[in-house]
Amino acid sequence: MDKPAARFAPGRRKGLSKVNYNRYGYYFVAPFIIVFLVFQLYPIIFTFRTSVSDAIGWNKINDSMVIGFENFKMYFDPGSPLFYDFWNSFGNTLLIWIANFVPQILMALVLASWFTDTRMRLKFRGGFKMLIFMPNIITAATIGVLFYSIFNYPIAPANSFLQQVGILHAPFEFFRSTTASRSIISFVQWWMWYGNTMIIMIAGIMGISPELYEAGLVDGCSSRQTFYRITLPLIKPILLFNLVTSMIGGLQMFDIPHLLTEGNPNKTTNTIARFIYQQAFTGSRNFNYASAASVILFIFIVMASLMLFWVMRERDPAVRDLRRAGK
């Protein structure tokens, strides 16, 4: 009697080997590849090309000439009109990103470990997760308008509330204070994204083999020990993923500062993406300078990501093996 497995094994029967199913794979990835080529790769190449050209204004975007690295000099020569604005917005972006990212990742870690802790038995987990994730679903435009209204001056909910409870005696102009404006933007970014980070963390923790936790339980680990000795080392790749994606997103921060403060007061909340936008789509439409700034940002992000990968690389061979085995 033939074994069924042997009979249907691929390639066993004559002629079957000629049918190649590989091409279906290409069909499936084709839409992505086409969209990627047209809407991502081409613009990226075009940006690189524009960054070394003299394309200022719409008229010249199509018949611009390559002039070399002149445009990049704008950002490295302290005497140029763009030098201060560019590095200032660079600094703002980093500051606002760090101010929202550190609390974001800490909060997400704490929540993720609570939600996955078998000993805590939290109720309404699904409901909490949904509530925490909710701000991420609302569009940035809506949130921008919301917070603008809340912190407006002189008559707005935040001012009325603070005056009623006696913290303020006169209305405070939040969007004229550098600290307040940056804090509000950082807070909004944090509030929008910690749910998202938390969900990814939860997925990471759920991926850790339960045997390890069971072994820990048997050996009498405390919750704290479980977290620091088992969870944290094993979700390092997820942490790295979060760190890198958040950094890329954070350095490209545009919508909230644009909608909420437009870079005010005195350019202290201007971000790098807003700087690029202003160069390209307002004023005399300096596409070349904007592209050069984009290229600098691109190089910075690539280098910073590589550095993160290097810093977060696994040094302990035992953990490395464990992680491979877990996969």
Binding site: T282, G283, S284, N286
Partner: peptide, 22 residues
Amino acid sequence: EKDLDTAIADFKAAVAAAFANI
């Protein structure tokens, strides 16, 4: 927040940054 001279200087710098042709 600023004195007049600083404000005017900042304004001029901002115009120069926005308009390559002015």
